[in-house]
Amino acid sequence: MPNKATVRGVLVDATLAPVAAGKIVATLQGSDIFDGGVRVVTQKVEATTNARGEWALALIVNGEGETAGTSWTIEGYNQYVAKVFEAKALFLASGLEITLGDLEKTSAQNLKAAREAGLARLILAADYDSYQAMPENQRRQNDLVVVKP
């Protein structure tokens, strides 16, 4: 069973007012090698924003296969079902909680690190203990852990 990470964000309009009852849709697509066989990997997850525009999704960590050929796309829609944003090529490297903004900043580096095992991953954590609490098979010796409360 793949691990999951919670991705959080706040949906706001052009005036920076929170969008209540908006919709966030996350789509995972790609292929990867698990247990010696190529598998097509897909998933679609949705969430509705609360009165403060906040949302959270539990998404599969797509950095656990052998070739890292998958990525997430996250789209946000306002209460009138008009698309507000789209973030593509997002790569979840670990099962730790992360904001959408931080995920956008770290995805390119972590996708490249997944493809080239010698490169360091950039892992953001609320504290170092939460990183250390992850199972040993999810941590790498060359991880760069940034504590971001």
Rank of each mutant, 00 (worst) to 15 (best):
residue 45 V to T: 04
residue 77 Y to S: 09
residue 50 N to V: 07
residue 61 V to M: 02
residue 79 Q to W: 06
residue 60 I to H: 11
residue 40 V to A: 05
residue 77 Y to V: 08
residue 70 T to G: 04
residue 62 N to F: 02
residue 62 N to G: 02
residue 59 L to A: 00
residue 66 E to A: 12
residue 44 K to Y: 00
residue 98 I to V: 15
residue 52 R to A: 15
residue 79 Q to F: 11
residue 89 A to S: 13
residue 36 G to K: 05
residue 87 A to P: 04
residue 41 V to A: 05
residue 58 A to F: 03
residue 56 A to W: 02
residue 99 T to A: 04
residue 56 A to D: 08
residue 38 V to I: 07
residue 48 T to F: 12
residue 40 V to T: 11
residue 78 N to E: 11
residue 101 G to C: 02
residue 94 S to T: 08
residue 39 R to V: 10
residue 84 V to L: 10
residue 42 T to I: 12
residue 53 G to R: 13
residue 62 N to E: 05
residue 96 L to D: 02
residue 79 Q to I: 05
residue 59 L to W: 00
residue 48 T to N: 14
residue 71 S to C: 03
residue 88 K to M: 07
residue 102 D to F: 11
residue 91 F to C: 04
residue 70 T to L: 03
residue 61 V to P: 01
residue 94 S to Q: 03
residue 93 A to V: 06
residue 31 S to E: 12
residue 57 L to V: 09
residue 68 A to T: 03
residue 40 V to Y: 06
residue 93 A to E: 06
residue 102 D to Q: 06
residue 93 A to M: 02
residue 47 A to L: 12
residue 64 E to T: 07
residue 79 Q to C: 06
residue 70 T to A: 09
residue 90 L to T: 05
residue 58 A to R: 02
residue 32 D to C: 11
residue 83 K to T: 08
residue 92 L to F: 02
residue 50 N to D: 15
residue 82 A to I: 12
residue 52 R to D: 15
residue 70 T to W: 03
residue 46 E to I: 12
residue 79 Q to D: 13
residue 74 I to G: 00
residue 85 F to E: 09
residue 72 W to Q: 06
residue 40 V to R: 10
residue 36 G to W: 09
residue 39 R to T: 09
residue 82 A to E: 14
residue 78 N to Q: 11
residue 61 V to I: 03
residue 58 A to W: 00
residue 90 L to S: 01
residue 51 A to Y: 08
residue 44 K to S: 10
residue 96 L to I: 01
residue 102 D to L: 12
residue 47 A to I: 07
residue 99 T to F: 08
residue 42 T to D: 12
residue 89 A to T: 09
residue 40 V to M: 07
residue 84 V to M: 13
residue 65 G to F: 05
residue 44 K to I: 13
residue 77 Y to H: 11
residue 101 G to A: 15
residue 95 G to A: 15
residue 35 D to Y: 10
residue 29 Q to G: 12
residue 58 A to V: 01
residue 55 W to H: 06
residue 55 W to T: 09
